[in-house]
Design a protein around this nucleic acid. Sequence first.
DNA 1: TAGATAAGTAAGTATTACTCACCAAGGTAA
DNA 2: TTACCTTGGTGAGTAATACTTACTTATCTA
Lengths: 198, 198
Amino acid sequence: MQTEEKKYSPPGRIKIMNALSELMREKDFHSITTAEIAATAGVTEGLIYKYFKDKRDLLYQVLNGHFQTFHDHIVSKIQARKSSIEKLSVIIRTSMKSYAANRVFAKILLLEVRNSPNYFESDAYDMVKIYSRTILDIINQGMEAGEIRRDISAHALRQVILGSIEHACLGEVIFGKELDTDQVSEHICNIIFTGAKK
Amino acid sequence: MQTEEKKYSPPGRIKIMNALSELMREKDFHSITTAEIAATAGVTEGLIYKYFKDKRDLLYQVLNGHFQTFHDHIVSKIQARKSSIEKLSVIIRTSMKSYAANRVFAKILLLEVRNSPNYFESDAYDMVKIYSRTILDIINQGMEAGEIRRDISAHALRQVILGSIEHACLGEVIFGKELDTDQVSEHICNIIFTGAKK
DNA sequence: TAGATAAGTAAGTATTACTCACCAAGGTAA
DNA sequence: TTACCTTGGTGAGTAATACTTACTTATCTA
């Protein structure tokens, strides 16, 4: 029953995860205390450590939940598209939209987890690797299909895509700035695919 | 004497800042204790709070020091270059080189500070704004000079440049992977300036 | 209906960031 | 010289907070 054990979660677990998500809307992870989490969840502090190894593990599992739906959404969006350029464009636009729509998710992913080595052992990071792999595969397909230049590095292109998405969302995530995702993603695609040089 | 007051630093202050830099090579900021910092600095814990508002303020000031030399280096490197494309290329290459050469600096800048709102009030962040502004100015000059397309967003181009640099260095910073900065920066410039589409 | 297992509690404990009152050594002015 | 002020540094605390552990209550099933 290994596969199913993650599906059902006791109410306390859910409440704790929701509580952290809630609190992360206003505060950064470090200034949220376990007492606070327990209080907003309506459970006792000890219960947190029944379901999570430590406070950071809770964070990773919250991220994992968010990333799961994020990734499903991305996959469903690119399915219809045929060309690789189209697919990558959709990934850029959809990712930015998701980050903008779910700021807590973006905040955790972009600002809160990467500073700790344990994150890279977590289930959440496994999801990120899959997402990242998907992009690389599309790039390679695009090269084989003759849509994308073969003389550039596929890895570098992925870095450019991922970096652009993330950096473009930083202002929004950190300062709560409004972000016109359609317009900005359009601009970014334009630069990445057709180049900035005149 | 406001301008000079920063120049002279008592030995204890220097030792503390060096100690944190030292410790950050092996550990992430959160798992470094103030006791540890004081011990490696050879001073007492209380002295930290004589020179720094709190543990994070110490981190910001360490970053500020690193960023100062980083920025000076960048400025000196682009001075000789005439075209904007050249200047931006140099910025990309030099930034990546600096991040790779000084991993602690990169680690602090990319992973450790952005999660806390106070950072954005710090002197270190003021330096980042200047660096960021420099890039935007170069882009605008390039547009006026007819080197860079006018129909793309200057801000978006900056995001792409900064995001690409940072994301390309993440693997190196986090996992200590080797990174051929010359080659990777070359690839990135190629993509950004001439486009990925065939 | 017994008994195992899972969900949840309550009261700790050790660690750690931070404070505060104090000491020592120049430098300056009377 | 002496008095005193500023600056660099100390060391013993303190409150807060992440985490533990022994316990209770509910649920399920044989």
